[in-house]
């Protein structure tokens, strides 16, 4: 009898305790947390944007060894006191462990191979980041917030963001096509509507010059295909001083493109347009596009 009472009490205790628990369904399982995490580590930039929306400063970021890869507007909200964890593709597990985090936010594509290791260090929330669409990101930020038991708050923010984007879209009265591409020393890569920047463009009611049926988010291109795609507005983010887009410019085909003919080729910040995916970045991108269209 005594045993049974004890058992019952223990069971009750467990259930009340689990009420205080946080539980989030992520890409590879369910994250269970006993309390709201305080020492957070982000292994992709999109998670930094999400954290900044909640005014949470991460203690470690896989920032490729360069803090300025996080855009100023986000650093203004959360400071830049974090520890660099190395590159995003090979974050240093040792440095992560030495920070004693109580939550790690990781990217499904890049970090699935080290997921088990990360879980040994701290509870790990693994979400889509690399190759995510605009819509994917809006779902992921709510999951990030859920880990801090602030999902409702974030949903409100997402709704506010949606209203803002609607306002931006209302300001735009154009059926011009807009495309963003990244240029490095190895080549030029177009971002299709499946990529984040392409999604933002679509969200604003603008066309992408790349056909909808393209499955890949990022498509390597030659100048020839670029001329075929022929965007009305062409934004390029360059990694480095001398990149392949510079050799394209020397080509007379370059001047055949609508964007170049009408002086609508713009060199923009690849950190904003490609690295820092998130609501804060999307709103700045929208402002840039509107300024560009009004010119």
């Amino acid at each position: 009898m005594l045993k049974r009472t004890l058992f019952l009490m223990a069971a009750l205790l467990v259930t009340t305790l689990s009420f205080g628990q946080i539980s989030v369904q992520d890409e590879l399982g369910t994250l269970e947390l006993d309390s709201v995490p305080e020492r957070v580590v982000a292994l992709e930039f999109s998670f930094v944007d999400a954290l900044a929306n909640l005014d949470i400063a991460p203690i470690g970021v896989a920032d490729d060894g360069d803090k300025t890869r996080v855009i100023e507007q986000i650093r203004a909200r959360i400071g830049d006191e974090w520890v660099s964890l190395g590159s995003r593709s090979q974050p240093s597990l040792e440095v992560i462990a030495s920070l004693n985090p109580d939550l790690i936010i990781a990217d499904r594509e890049r970090h699935e191979a080290i997921y088990e290791d990360l879980k040994r260090i701290a509870p790990t929330l693994i979400l889509k980041s690399r190759g995510e669409t605009y819509e994917d990101n809006l779902k992921a930020v709510v999951k990030v917030a859920a880990a801090f038991d602030r999902a409702d708050e974030m949903e409100k923010k997402v709704a506010e963001h949606g209203a803002k984007m609607d306002q931006f879209a209302a300001q735009i009265d154009s059926d011009a096509s807009v495309m963003f591409a990244v240029s490095s020393a190895r080549g030029v890569t177009m971002h299709t509507p499946k990529a984040y920047a392409g999604g933002v463009v679509n969200r604003l009611g603008l066309r992408s010059p790349v056909p909808e049926e393209t499955e890949d988010a990022y498509v390597r291109t030659t100048i020839e295909r670029l001329v075929k795609v022929n965007p009305d507005y062409f934004l390029v983010g360059e990694y480095g001083d001398e990149t392949v887009i510079d050799t394209f410019k020397e080509n007379s085909l370059w001047n055949v493109m609508n964007a170049v003919k009408n002086d609508r080729y713009v060199e923009t910040d690849p950190r904003l347009w490609s690295l820092n995916r998130g609501m804060i970045a999307a709103e700045i991108m929208a402002e840039e596009i509107i300024a560009l269209l009004e010119e």
Binding site: L93, E94, A97, S98, D117, R120, I121
Partner: peptide, 10 residues
């Protein structure tokens, strides 16, 4: 103290 770095990683 360094349980993960030593036992879990290195």
């Amino acid at each position: 103290e360094h349980e993960f770095i030593i036992m879990g990683y290195r």
